[in-house]
Amino acid sequence: MLLKRLSEAAGPSGFEDEVRRILYEELRPHARRVYTDALGNLFVETGNPGRGPRVMLAAHLDEVALMVVQIDDAGTLRFRPVGGVDERVLVSKAVFVGPNRIPGVIGSKAVHLQKPEERGKPFSVEDLYIDIGASGREQAERHVSVGDTAVFATAFERFGDGKAKGKAFDDRVGCAALAETAKKSFDLPLVFAFTVQEEIGLRGAGPAAYRVDPDLALVVEGTLCFDVAGAEEKDAVTVQGRGPALSILDRMTIADRAVLRRLVRAAEKNGIPYQWRRSGAGANDAGAIHLVRRGIATGAVSVPVRYIHSPVQVVDLADYHHTVRLLEAFLRDLEEDPQLDFPAEGEWTS
Protein backbone atom coordinates (compact mmCIF):
# COMPACT_ATOMS: atom_id res chain seq x y z
CA MET A 1 0.00 0.00 0.00
CA LEU A 2 1.39 3.38 -1.05
CA LEU A 3 0.29 5.11 2.17
CA LYS A 4 2.27 2.55 4.19
CA ARG A 5 5.43 3.10 2.15
CA LEU A 6 5.05 6.88 2.34
CA SER A 7 4.34 6.81 6.07
CA GLU A 8 7.38 4.70 6.85
CA ALA A 9 9.76 6.68 4.62
CA ALA A 10 11.93 9.40 6.16
CA GLY A 11 11.30 13.00 5.16
CA PRO A 12 12.36 15.59 7.73
CA SER A 13 11.96 19.21 6.55
CA GLY A 14 14.81 19.94 4.15
CA PHE A 15 15.67 16.24 3.86
CA GLU A 16 12.67 14.86 2.00
CA ASP A 17 14.69 12.64 -0.35
CA GLU A 18 13.15 9.23 0.49
CA VAL A 19 9.58 10.41 0.15
CA ARG A 20 10.33 12.37 -3.02
CA ARG A 21 11.98 9.28 -4.52
CA ILE A 22 8.96 7.05 -3.82
CA LEU A 23 6.55 9.51 -5.43
CA TYR A 24 8.84 10.13 -8.38
CA GLU A 25 9.07 6.45 -9.17
CA GLU A 26 5.40 5.86 -8.53
CA LEU A 27 4.20 8.70 -10.75
CA ARG A 28 6.81 8.87 -13.51
CA PRO A 29 4.85 6.45 -15.75
CA HIS A 30 1.70 8.56 -15.43
CA ALA A 31 3.17 12.02 -15.96
CA ARG A 32 3.78 14.28 -18.92
CA ARG A 33 6.65 15.89 -17.09
CA VAL A 34 8.37 15.44 -13.73
CA TYR A 35 10.95 17.85 -12.30
CA THR A 36 12.27 19.46 -9.13
CA ASP A 37 13.31 22.99 -8.17
CA ALA A 38 16.12 24.52 -6.15
CA LEU A 39 14.41 23.69 -2.84
CA GLY A 40 13.56 20.11 -3.72
CA ASN A 41 9.85 20.62 -4.43
CA LEU A 42 8.69 17.82 -6.76
CA PHE A 43 6.38 18.71 -9.65
CA VAL A 44 4.35 16.13 -11.56
CA GLU A 45 2.41 17.42 -14.55
CA THR A 46 -0.50 15.38 -15.92
CA GLY A 47 -3.74 15.90 -17.82
CA ASN A 48 -4.46 17.99 -20.87
CA PRO A 49 -2.31 21.12 -21.08
CA GLY A 50 -4.52 22.77 -23.66
CA ARG A 51 -7.80 22.90 -21.84
CA GLY A 52 -9.42 24.50 -18.84
CA PRO A 53 -7.99 26.15 -15.75
CA ARG A 54 -4.51 25.23 -14.62
CA VAL A 55 -4.87 23.51 -11.26
CA MET A 56 -2.11 22.97 -8.73
CA LEU A 57 -2.71 20.27 -6.15
CA ALA A 58 -0.29 20.49 -3.26
CA ALA A 59 0.74 18.18 -0.44
CA HIS A 60 3.85 18.51 1.64
CA LEU A 61 6.56 15.87 1.67
CA ASP A 62 8.15 16.75 4.96
CA GLU A 63 7.43 15.68 8.52
CA VAL A 64 8.48 16.87 11.95
CA ALA A 65 11.64 15.08 13.03
CA LEU A 66 14.92 15.39 14.92
CA MET A 67 18.44 16.45 13.96
CA VAL A 68 21.67 15.22 15.53
CA VAL A 69 23.59 18.30 16.69
CA GLN A 70 26.36 16.84 18.84
CA ILE A 71 27.96 13.49 19.53
CA ASP A 72 28.91 12.93 23.17
CA ASP A 73 32.14 11.25 24.26
CA ALA A 74 29.95 8.37 25.46
CA GLY A 75 28.66 7.90 21.91
CA THR A 76 25.16 9.20 22.66
CA LEU A 77 23.63 11.69 20.25
CA ARG A 78 22.27 15.07 21.27
CA PHE A 79 19.47 16.31 19.08
CA ARG A 80 17.08 19.15 18.42
CA PRO A 81 13.63 19.09 16.85
CA VAL A 82 13.03 19.88 13.19
CA GLY A 83 9.59 21.54 13.10
CA GLY A 84 7.01 21.56 15.87
CA VAL A 85 7.68 18.43 17.91
CA ASP A 86 6.03 18.24 21.32
CA GLU A 87 9.04 17.49 23.54
CA ARG A 88 6.86 15.52 25.94
CA VAL A 89 6.27 12.74 23.41
CA LEU A 90 9.94 11.99 22.74
CA VAL A 91 11.09 9.94 25.70
CA SER A 92 11.31 6.15 25.18
CA LYS A 93 10.63 6.10 21.44
CA ALA A 94 12.53 4.24 18.73
CA VAL A 95 14.03 6.18 15.83
CA PHE A 96 16.02 5.70 12.64
CA VAL A 97 19.03 7.96 12.26
CA GLY A 98 20.55 9.25 9.06
CA PRO A 99 20.35 8.11 5.45
CA ASN A 100 21.37 4.56 6.43
CA ARG A 101 18.50 4.27 8.92
CA ILE A 102 20.65 3.37 11.92
CA PRO A 103 18.27 2.17 14.67
CA GLY A 104 18.32 4.12 17.90
CA VAL A 105 16.23 4.74 21.00
CA ILE A 106 15.58 7.96 22.87
CA GLY A 107 16.92 7.59 26.38
CA SER A 108 16.70 9.59 29.56
CA LYS A 109 17.65 9.29 33.18
CA ALA A 110 15.75 6.31 34.64
CA VAL A 111 12.82 7.26 36.82
CA HIS A 112 14.48 5.55 39.82
CA LEU A 113 17.41 7.92 39.60
CA GLN A 114 15.28 11.06 39.45
CA LYS A 115 14.50 13.23 42.39
CA PRO A 116 10.79 13.34 43.31
CA GLU A 117 10.51 16.95 42.09
CA GLU A 118 11.97 15.98 38.70
CA ARG A 119 9.36 13.32 38.10
CA GLY A 120 6.48 15.71 37.61
CA LYS A 121 8.28 17.69 34.92
CA PRO A 122 8.36 16.81 31.25
CA PHE A 123 11.69 15.98 29.69
CA SER A 124 13.13 18.71 27.49
CA VAL A 125 15.36 17.89 24.52
CA GLU A 126 18.36 18.89 26.60
CA ASP A 127 17.62 15.98 28.99
CA LEU A 128 17.26 13.44 26.20
CA TYR A 129 19.60 11.69 23.81
CA ILE A 130 19.54 9.11 21.07
CA ASP A 131 21.37 5.91 21.91
CA ILE A 132 22.51 3.82 18.93
CA GLY A 133 24.42 1.40 21.11
CA ALA A 134 27.81 2.95 20.40
CA SER A 135 30.59 2.34 22.91
CA GLY A 136 31.96 5.82 22.44
CA ARG A 137 32.21 8.84 20.18
CA GLU A 138 34.55 7.16 17.73
CA GLN A 139 32.21 4.26 17.05
CA ALA A 140 29.20 6.54 16.83
CA GLU A 141 30.96 8.76 14.29
CA ARG A 142 31.45 5.80 11.98
CA HIS A 143 27.65 5.56 11.63
CA VAL A 144 26.30 9.02 12.27
CA SER A 145 27.35 12.60 11.51
CA VAL A 146 26.28 15.87 13.07
CA GLY A 147 23.51 17.19 10.84
CA ASP A 148 21.97 13.76 10.24
CA THR A 149 18.24 13.67 10.85
CA ALA A 150 16.23 11.06 12.73
CA VAL A 151 12.62 9.99 12.28
CA PHE A 152 10.35 7.89 14.44
CA ALA A 153 10.56 4.15 13.75
CA THR A 154 6.80 3.60 13.71
CA ALA A 155 5.40 0.78 11.60
CA PHE A 156 2.28 1.50 9.60
CA GLU A 157 -0.54 -0.76 10.69
CA ARG A 158 -4.27 -1.07 10.18
CA PHE A 159 -6.08 -1.57 13.42
CA GLY A 160 -9.43 -1.22 15.10
CA ASP A 161 -12.43 -0.33 13.04
CA GLY A 162 -11.05 0.89 9.71
CA LYS A 163 -8.30 2.95 11.29
CA ALA A 164 -4.57 3.02 10.64
CA LYS A 165 -1.71 4.12 12.84
CA GLY A 166 1.67 5.28 11.70
CA LYS A 167 3.96 8.26 11.69
CA ALA A 168 3.86 11.32 9.45
CA PHE A 169 0.26 10.99 8.27
CA ASP A 170 0.65 14.76 8.33
CA ASP A 171 1.03 14.93 5.37
CA ARG A 172 1.64 11.53 3.78
CA VAL A 173 -2.14 11.11 3.60
CA GLY A 174 -2.07 14.16 1.32
CA CYS A 175 0.84 12.77 -0.71
CA ALA A 176 -0.95 9.43 -1.12
CA ALA A 177 -4.25 11.08 -2.07
CA LEU A 178 -2.46 13.21 -4.67
CA ALA A 179 -0.62 10.19 -6.04
CA GLU A 180 -3.89 8.27 -6.47
CA THR A 181 -5.37 11.29 -8.23
CA ALA A 182 -2.35 11.75 -10.48
CA LYS A 183 -2.86 8.25 -11.87
CA LYS A 184 -6.36 9.11 -13.08
CA SER A 185 -6.98 10.74 -16.41
CA PHE A 186 -8.38 14.28 -16.47
CA ASP A 187 -9.10 16.65 -19.30
CA LEU A 188 -7.46 19.54 -17.42
CA PRO A 189 -3.90 20.80 -17.01
CA LEU A 190 -2.87 19.50 -13.59
CA VAL A 191 0.31 20.13 -11.67
CA PHE A 192 0.86 18.03 -8.57
CA ALA A 193 3.25 19.90 -6.29
CA PHE A 194 4.84 17.87 -3.52
CA THR A 195 6.30 20.59 -1.38
CA VAL A 196 9.20 20.75 1.06
CA GLN A 197 9.67 22.52 4.41
CA GLU A 198 6.01 23.02 5.36
CA GLU A 199 6.66 22.12 8.98
CA ILE A 200 9.29 24.82 9.45
CA GLY A 201 7.16 27.71 8.26
CA LEU A 202 5.39 26.91 4.97
CA ARG A 203 8.67 27.53 3.14
CA GLY A 204 8.47 25.34 0.06
CA ALA A 205 4.96 26.08 -1.19
CA GLY A 206 5.39 29.78 -2.01
CA PRO A 207 8.21 29.30 -4.54
CA ALA A 208 6.34 26.28 -5.94
CA ALA A 209 3.19 28.32 -6.54
CA TYR A 210 5.23 31.18 -7.99
CA ARG A 211 6.69 28.76 -10.54
CA VAL A 212 3.44 26.97 -11.41
CA ASP A 213 1.35 30.17 -11.40
CA PRO A 214 -1.94 28.22 -11.40
CA ASP A 215 -5.48 29.52 -11.83
CA LEU A 216 -6.52 27.57 -8.78
CA ALA A 217 -4.78 25.61 -6.04
CA LEU A 218 -5.94 22.89 -3.70
CA VAL A 219 -3.95 21.90 -0.63
CA VAL A 220 -4.46 18.39 0.71
CA GLU A 221 -3.42 17.97 4.33
CA GLY A 222 -3.64 15.99 7.50
CA THR A 223 -5.17 18.18 10.18
CA LEU A 224 -5.94 18.50 13.88
CA CYS A 225 -8.49 16.09 15.28
CA PHE A 226 -9.40 16.04 18.96
CA ASP A 227 -12.53 13.88 19.00
CA VAL A 228 -11.36 11.69 21.86
CA ALA A 229 -11.87 10.99 25.55
CA GLY A 230 -12.33 14.12 27.60
CA ALA A 231 -12.79 16.39 24.60
CA GLU A 232 -15.85 18.49 23.95
CA GLU A 233 -17.36 18.80 20.51
CA LYS A 234 -16.59 22.53 20.46
CA ASP A 235 -12.86 21.79 20.76
CA ALA A 236 -12.71 18.83 18.38
CA VAL A 237 -11.76 20.85 15.25
CA THR A 238 -12.58 17.73 13.20
CA VAL A 239 -14.21 14.37 13.93
CA GLN A 240 -13.06 11.11 12.41
CA GLY A 241 -15.54 9.32 10.18
CA ARG A 242 -17.24 12.51 9.02
CA GLY A 243 -15.18 12.77 5.86
CA PRO A 244 -12.69 15.33 4.55
CA ALA A 245 -12.54 18.62 6.46
CA LEU A 246 -12.81 21.84 4.47
CA SER A 247 -10.90 24.84 5.84
CA ILE A 248 -12.76 28.09 6.41
CA LEU A 249 -10.32 30.00 8.61
CA ASP A 250 -6.91 29.32 10.09
CA ARG A 251 -4.00 31.32 11.39
CA MET A 252 -2.74 32.19 7.91
CA THR A 253 -5.71 31.96 5.57
CA ILE A 254 -9.29 33.10 5.21
CA ALA A 255 -10.69 30.54 2.81
CA ASP A 256 -11.59 31.43 -0.75
CA ARG A 257 -15.37 31.27 -1.12
CA ALA A 258 -15.35 30.33 -4.80
CA VAL A 259 -13.15 27.29 -4.25
CA LEU A 260 -15.12 26.26 -1.17
CA ARG A 261 -18.36 26.46 -3.12
CA ARG A 262 -16.97 24.20 -5.81
CA LEU A 263 -15.74 21.72 -3.20
CA VAL A 264 -19.14 21.64 -1.49
CA ARG A 265 -20.91 21.27 -4.83
CA ALA A 266 -18.67 18.36 -5.83
CA ALA A 267 -19.18 16.63 -2.48
CA GLU A 268 -22.94 17.04 -2.47
CA LYS A 269 -23.39 16.03 -6.10
CA ASN A 270 -21.55 12.78 -5.41
CA GLY A 271 -22.84 12.04 -1.93
CA ILE A 272 -19.39 12.43 -0.36
CA PRO A 273 -19.46 13.31 3.34
CA TYR A 274 -17.54 16.42 4.39
CA GLN A 275 -17.15 18.58 7.48
CA TRP A 276 -15.90 22.06 8.29
CA ARG A 277 -12.49 22.40 9.88
CA ARG A 278 -13.69 24.30 12.92
CA SER A 279 -10.81 26.26 14.40
CA GLY A 280 -8.87 29.43 13.74
CA ALA A 281 -5.68 27.69 14.88
CA GLY A 282 -3.03 25.98 12.78
CA ALA A 283 -1.98 26.68 9.23
CA ASN A 284 -1.04 24.87 6.06
CA ASP A 285 0.58 25.56 2.70
CA ALA A 286 -2.52 27.48 1.56
CA GLY A 287 -1.24 30.31 3.76
CA ALA A 288 1.75 30.75 1.48
CA ILE A 289 0.13 29.83 -1.82
CA HIS A 290 -2.86 32.19 -1.75
CA LEU A 291 -0.63 35.27 -1.48
CA VAL A 292 1.59 34.53 -4.48
CA ARG A 293 1.71 36.96 -7.41
CA ARG A 294 -1.78 38.49 -7.85
CA GLY A 295 -3.25 36.05 -5.35
CA ILE A 296 -4.19 32.46 -6.12
CA ALA A 297 -7.65 31.04 -5.41
CA THR A 298 -6.83 28.29 -2.94
CA GLY A 299 -8.77 25.67 -1.03
CA ALA A 300 -7.67 23.24 1.65
CA VAL A 301 -9.04 19.73 2.18
CA SER A 302 -7.81 17.72 5.15
CA VAL A 303 -7.95 14.22 6.51
CA PRO A 304 -8.48 14.34 10.31
CA VAL A 305 -5.36 12.99 12.08
CA ARG A 306 -5.41 12.20 15.79
CA TYR A 307 -2.16 12.79 17.72
CA ILE A 308 -0.75 14.86 14.88
CA HIS A 309 3.03 15.57 15.11
CA SER A 310 3.51 12.58 17.39
CA PRO A 311 5.19 9.22 16.63
CA VAL A 312 1.82 7.42 16.54
CA GLN A 313 -0.78 9.20 14.47
CA VAL A 314 -4.18 7.71 13.72
CA VAL A 315 -6.38 8.18 10.67
CA ASP A 316 -9.73 6.76 9.67
CA LEU A 317 -9.17 5.15 6.28
CA ALA A 318 -12.75 5.97 5.26
CA ASP A 319 -11.92 9.68 5.65
CA TYR A 320 -8.87 9.15 3.48
CA HIS A 321 -10.93 7.29 0.90
CA HIS A 322 -13.58 10.03 0.83
CA THR A 323 -10.83 12.62 0.41
CA VAL A 324 -9.56 10.83 -2.68
CA ARG A 325 -13.13 10.68 -3.98
CA LEU A 326 -13.64 14.38 -3.30
CA LEU A 327 -10.49 15.29 -5.24
CA GLU A 328 -11.75 13.38 -8.24
CA ALA A 329 -15.26 14.81 -7.94
CA PHE A 330 -13.84 18.34 -7.68
CA LEU A 331 -11.71 17.88 -10.80
CA ARG A 332 -14.55 16.21 -12.79
CA ASP A 333 -16.77 19.14 -11.87
CA LEU A 334 -14.07 21.49 -13.17
CA GLU A 335 -13.87 19.47 -16.40
CA GLU A 336 -17.60 19.88 -16.92
CA ASP A 337 -17.72 23.49 -15.86
CA PRO A 338 -14.25 24.98 -16.35
CA GLN A 339 -15.50 28.55 -16.07
CA LEU A 340 -14.01 29.93 -12.88
CA ASP A 341 -16.18 32.56 -11.35
CA PHE A 342 -14.40 34.35 -8.58
CA PRO A 343 -16.61 36.93 -6.95
CA ALA A 344 -15.09 38.41 -3.84
CA GLU A 345 -18.36 38.02 -2.01
CA GLY A 346 -21.26 35.72 -1.47
CA GLU A 347 -22.27 32.63 0.39
CA TRP A 348 -19.81 29.83 0.75
CA THR A 349 -21.99 27.30 2.42
CA SER A 350 -24.84 25.55 0.71
Partner: peptide, 11 residues
Protein backbone atom coordinates in the same frame (compact mmCIF):
# COMPACT_ATOMS: atom_id res chain seq x y z
CA UNK B 1 -16.03 61.40 -6.90
CA UNK B 2 -13.67 59.70 -9.32
CA UNK B 3 -15.84 57.66 -11.66
CA UNK B 4 -15.34 53.94 -11.79
CA UNK B 5 -13.32 51.60 -9.68
CA UNK B 6 -12.49 47.90 -9.80
CA UNK B 7 -12.85 45.12 -7.28
CA UNK B 8 -10.22 42.41 -7.66
CA UNK B 9 -10.77 38.78 -6.80
CA UNK B 10 -9.15 39.25 -3.41
CA UNK B 11 -11.71 41.88 -2.48
Amino acid sequence: RIGGCDVDRNG
